[in-house]
Design a protein around this nucleic acid. Structure first.
Lengths: 376, 376
DNA sequence: GTGAAAGCGCTAACAG
DNA sequence: CTGTTAGCGCTTTCAC
């Protein structure tokens, strides 16, 4: 019903952490601490110290800190002065223990070397910050153990919620009854497992890529896919197979490769393998559909090194439309994912879930788009 | 003196967060909670609840949780059983408040879309994890306000330490007397400001790149640099200028460009500008040295689009040796930075600083390497 | 308006 | 070996 999620308090966009009115006064603190020389500015200073210096109670300091109404201006100023003078900073640990929230959101990616995640993460980050949350990124390395330990951060209340872009986690998560945890899946998800998710229609997207190649006259189309354990890999494979079948083509098993990496190198060597002359003459693919632009970029490199020209000898289609896609030679035809929106939506779903843990949050599919460039 | 840093306790590599002996017993918890149906497994359960269920005191539970010695096996088993049955998880917030440490390390990058940071961050992450710390990544977007708020996470004890790869922060930080905060600088640093740092010798590295071009016979060498506010930009520019001068060449002002972005696109358009026919015939550069591989990759694309061939018409040298460098056409000659080691060293310096806040931690410079590929 | 006091969930003495 | 107890620094009734 609500046009946007408004977690309890903190509804206005605030650039800084809980930076209510109370921050203004001591911005630009001239660090006028009376302490010794190299003394780490007001190390173990607590609210009690400030209270003493200001000649008030801790309750009053707390009220000032939290911009509560019932404080006389004079008192407030006294407190502010004491805070300023002492260089006091709230111990967020204590505050969080009291309020039982950390205002931290976690985003887990399987590999932050993959540029695909960058824009998604930016989308998450911007929405989170708008709602007074910090977003912190973790690299799971697609490792179940590490994933689990990050989920533990959630269980142990060190973060309020999480967004997981990591396929492997999904499987892990399943066994952990983690659907009770405040997290959402992004890009890779299992619709059946009761966790809110956002992604694209991988089946249709793959079909679109293949149909584009078909329209260009290709009939022997190869698929360079990632590990078939991933849901998106299965969906894209099915889209590829069905598109071919619908065109009256029987997909050859030899045209398909499954890689356990999305690195450029993986794509390069896969291309070389695919083009091996061991293939029956009339069965060698004339086009390659790779399920990620990183892979496709590698494919371009691999084809180049075995003397094949793109798109004359062989066409290439990628997936994602990351920024490198338009820079390589030839620029990649690819399926664009709305990365920014994917991230923003994921963040919004999570915020929604935090605001109302009971409401069932829907899964959402965002539109993709075929971007035609020089590689086809 | 010490071969390696060993923060107080937690010295052995532990794959999971404080995952002492206590974890084993309840791995694979069969989630046998007696609670209602959709009840979020043991939401607000505390150590006291476990103690009650196990018929022991909270102290004993705490001991079991922390794998202390003095607990009779029978008692320990009782507690473990209660923990297992209830699905209890430590509230890390409370624990941290008590122990006054969060076991969290922050890494700030100006832009996690830049692949240069990926390997560095992995290096940090692996060292951090080996020492029982979590590493969380923040994107400052090269924005001073955001940088400041992340530093606040430190001040407010939400993280134990930070590694900053963000040039802009350095300036910000200076004004904040933040040299007292537990952080180290990586890649971009101000040696004079008393913050431990790790990086490379940018001056020599740039010189090496230019000397390589000189050796190839080039005399009109352009420099595509980032914003000169950055220390590394100034250092590399100086290395470039001096190398040219030493070779008896007077560097032309027209050969130098300063960009406020490291994106591919920025490199592409810079290349186009640089090659404009407005240049006097005999002054057009025959080689371009770009201060990052992303820029150089864009340059390749830009040159291609105006019909220039690399390296025949013009040579290109990049910087960093990120993974894309070897994939583009032609593969980039570049200055390789030891990214992994940079990250690992930064993490070690930070850990050292945390273990002994008083000891002065040195700045360290790591070796770079010229990698010659097809673009020259 | 302001203060006193009770915890948030945990760890660490200190007793027994 | 195990239990009791005193806080960690903060927020929040509830009085005054």
């Amino acid at each position: 019903m609500r046009p946007d999620v408004q977690p309890e308090l903190h509804s206005e966009p605030q650039p800084e952490w809980r930076a209510g009115p109370r921050r203004q006064p001591h911005a630009q603190s001239r660090s006028s601490e009376p302490a010794g020389p190299a003394r780490p500015a007001a190390e173990g200073l607590s609210i009690a110290g400030v209270a003493r210096q200001a000649g008030v109670s801790v309750a009053t300091v707390s009220r000032v800190l939290n911009a509560h109404e019932n404080v006389r201006p004079a008192t407030r100023d006294k407190v502010l002065a004491a805070i300023d003078a002492s260089g006091y900073r709230v111990n967020e640990l204590a505050r969080n223990l009291r309020t039982a929230e950390s205002r931290l959101l976690l985003t887990m990616v399987p590999d932050f070397g993959n540029p695909f995640y960058a824009e998604i993460v930016r989308g998450i980050d911007s929405v989170a910050r708008q709602h007074g949350y910090f977003m912190l990124l973790c690299d799971t390395g697609a490792d179940a153990g590490r994933e689990r330990s990050y989920f533990d951060l959630l269980r142990r209340r060190r973060a309020d919620g999480a967004i997981c872009l990591d396929p492997a986690t999904i499987q892990q998560a399943l066994g952990e009854a983690s659907s009770a945890l405040p997290w959402v899946a992004c890009c890779e998800f299992e619709p059946s497992m009761g966790v809110p998710y956002v992604g694209i229609d991988n089946y249709r997207a793959a079909g679109d890529a293949v149909r584009h190649l078909l329209a260009r006259g290709h009939r022997r189309i190869a698929l360079i896919n990632s590990d078939i354990d991933y849901l998106y890999a299965r969906q894209r494979q099915q889209g590829y197979l069905d598109a071919l079948t619908e065109a009256g083509i029987t997909p050859l098993e030899d045209w398909r490769m499954n890689l356990n990496s999305l690195d450029y190198e993986a794509g390069a060597s896969a291309a070389a393998v695919l083009m091996e002359p061991s293939h029956p003459k009339n069965a060698a693919p004339t086009a390659i559909f790779a399920v990620s632009d990183t892979l496709a970029t590698g494919v371009l490199h691999g084809l180049r090194s075995i003397g094949k020209r793109v798109p004359d000898d062989i066409a290439v289609v990628g997936f994602d439309d990351i920024s490198i896609a338009s820079q390589v030679d030839p620029p990649l035809t690819t399926i664009a994912q709305p990365m920014r929106e994917l991230g923003e939506t994921a963040a919004r779903l999570l915020l929604q879930r935090l605001a109302n843990p009971l409401a069932s949050v829907p899964g959402v599919l965002l539109p993709h788009r075929l971007v035609i460039r020089g590689s086809t």
